[in-house]
């Protein structure tokens, strides 16, 4: 899959069209921006880390039934995603008071909220992404109907319910995060954009150390080291999967064994019923991976390099839990 036309360049990513009209390539940039791009910098390798972190998190979410635009990680910086029309609402979920919640409303920094809050912001740089309520969103036509706002809230809370314990396992407190959603070609609302230390706040559970973009916002430094720390912590959260690989001779390649069995079935009286027999191999692997899509991606590489001879064979992969 190759990048064709640059469709859009945002603060953290560039979006390219591909030969498939329903798939885009997102390229993760090294640029750092804060306060609506009034503060800018670059951190070499940040884009690579965010691509890796987002890949793991999208995989975890999709394992838990959240539909996302993630298709696969193509290389260090590029992610293949489903084409969506982005809904211009930034959906923010907060578990702990900090940032604007403290500045604007005076809730003490670090207070655990009794229940997570979901907020909507109008995604508009010229207006500094102002906070809006449901009625604003409907009146401004940001969504087609008010029920869609309910979907955004429900999905955002589900994501929080999955990610909070996920990060807690590796000593990270999920303080708050921003999500973006889009509509795919069927009109279904799915999770889009990225999930990384650019879009989340993480505090170390014991030391309280900030391991996210606040290090840049607040000039703490060590941005890349912190992002790397987040990546390394979640990378070990591997689960067991079973990868079932079925390998068959390609259509058009004569399957001598299949032919012999077909003949034998014919002489047993199944000639009328059986039209063709193809005999393949099944290889069952027990693998540890970050998610189903991670397990699949790695199994695919194994097939390409060893398990199948792609000159004569096709293969398919099924990943199941356990």
């Amino acid at each position: 899959m190759e990048k064709l036309e640059l469709l859009y360049e945002g603060k953290g990513k560039k979006l390219y069209s591909t030969s498939d009209k329903n798939q885009f390539i997102a390229e993760f940039k090294d640029d750092l921006t804060a306060f609506n791009a009034q503060k800018r910098s670059q951190e070499l390798g940040k884009g690579i880390l965010n691509n890796e972190i987002s890949t793991i998190i999208f995989g975890e979410l999709s394992d838990n039934g959240i539909k996302t635009h993630f298709l696969k990680k193509l290389n260090e910086r590029d992610m293949l995603v489903k084409r969506v029309n982005i809904i211009p609402i930034e959906v923010v979920v907060r578990n702990v008071a900090t940032g604007s919640l403290t500045k604007r409303l005076g809730i003490p920094e670090g207070r655990e909220l009794t229940t997570p809050i979901v907020e909507f912001y109008y995604k508009n740089d010229a207006m500094n992404d102002p906070i809006i309520n449901d009625e604003h969103a409907v009146i401004m036509g940001l969504v087609d109907k008010s029920e869609e706002l309910e979907t955004l809230k429900v999905q955002a809370r589900k994501v929080n319910d999955i990610l909070k314990p996920f990060f807690a396992k590796v000593g990270l407190r999920l303080i708050d995060f921003k999500l973006e959603f889009g509509k795919d070609q069927n009109g279904e609302i799915i999770l889009a954009d990225e999930i990384s230390p650019d879009s989340c706040r993480f505090w170390d559970s014991t030391t309280g150390e900030k391991l996210d973009k606040d290090r840049f916002r607040q000039d703490i430094g060590g941005v890349k080291v912190a992002y790397e720390e987040v990546k390394n912590r979640i990378l070990v959260l591997k689960k067991g999967y079973k990868a079932i690989v079925n390998i068959f001779l390609k259509e058009g390649v004569l399957d001598s064994a299949g032919k012999a069995v077909n003949h034998a079935l014919g002489s047993l009286g199944f000639g009328e019923t059986v039209n063709d027999v193809r005999i393949g191999r099944q290889i069952v692997l027990k693998v540890s991976a970050n998610s189903k899509s991670d397990a699949e991606a790695q199994t695919r590489q194994m097939c390409e390099s060893l398990l199948a001879n792609t000159v004569i064979e096709d293969y398919n992969i099924e990943i199941i839990n356990g």
């Binding site: 004569l254 001598s256 001879n309």
Partner: peptide, 16 residues
């Protein structure tokens, strides 16, 4: 052939 130093692939003999 498997190492792609030569083209093509090897299969089981037709008569098995």
């Amino acid at each position: 052939v498997e190492a792609h130093l030569l083209p093509g692939a090897m299969m089981r003999n037709d008569g098995l």
